[in-house]
């Protein structure tokens, strides 16, 4: 069963200067496929931006899975927008563990953990190289991650 809620696409599509696409997702492992489909369907993303958007946004989705779940209502609202020609992605959610995690999201060198055979910090490094800015904001009512391309 696809548990994705219906995505909404809106904006001044004729000029492509201002447009927006939003999805509310239940953040769970299998949700990454619905998220990838949502990103693939956004028509105001330029060909030169599409691969960077997909890689960077999916890394942040993975980041939420590993460091922010369980979310307060289990879902995140993810908004891809173009404003004044610049592409943005915003993740909006509430997690009890995000404030502490956001303090550890500085630009550090990735570290390889031989036991788990996983890199720690590699995903954030990739997002930073694929985008022009990455911002984590923990809030009382809502936590946010913003990527600007």
């Amino acid at each position: 069963m696809d548990r994705t809620m219906t995505p909404v696409f809106s904006g001044t599509l004729s000029r492509r200067r201002s447009a927006e696409a939003t999805i509310r997702l239940i953040v769970e492992k299998s949700g990454v496929f619905a998220f990838e489909r949502f990103l693939d369907r956004i028509d105001f993303v330029l060909p030169s931006e599409r691969l960077r958007l997909k890689l960077a946004a999916c890394e942040i989705y993975d980041n939420l899975l590993r460091h922010a779940v369980p979310l307060v209502d289990g879902t995140a609202v993810i908004r891809v927008s173009r404003r004044n020609g610049t592409l943005y992605v915003g993740f909006h959610f509430k997690s009890p563990s995000f404030a502490a995690y956001s303090l550890r999201t500085g630009d550090h060198d990735p570290v390889f953990d031989r036991t788990s055979r996983r890199w720690h910090g590699m995903g954030l490094r990739m997002v930073r190289k694929l985008s022009t800015s990455l911002v984590f904001r923990a809030g009382e009512l809502c936590d946010r991650v913003f990527i600007r391309f």
């Binding site: 990838e36 997909k54 890689l55 999916c58 890394e59 993975d62 390889f112 031989r114 055979r117 996983r118 890199w119 590699m122 995903g123 990739m126």
Partner: peptide, 13 residues
């Protein structure tokens, strides 16, 4: 069709 940091970690290991 996509390659995440987790997949890259697998290759690097």
């Amino acid at each position: 069709t996509t390659l995440s940091s987790a997949g890259i970690g697998v290759i690097m290991a």
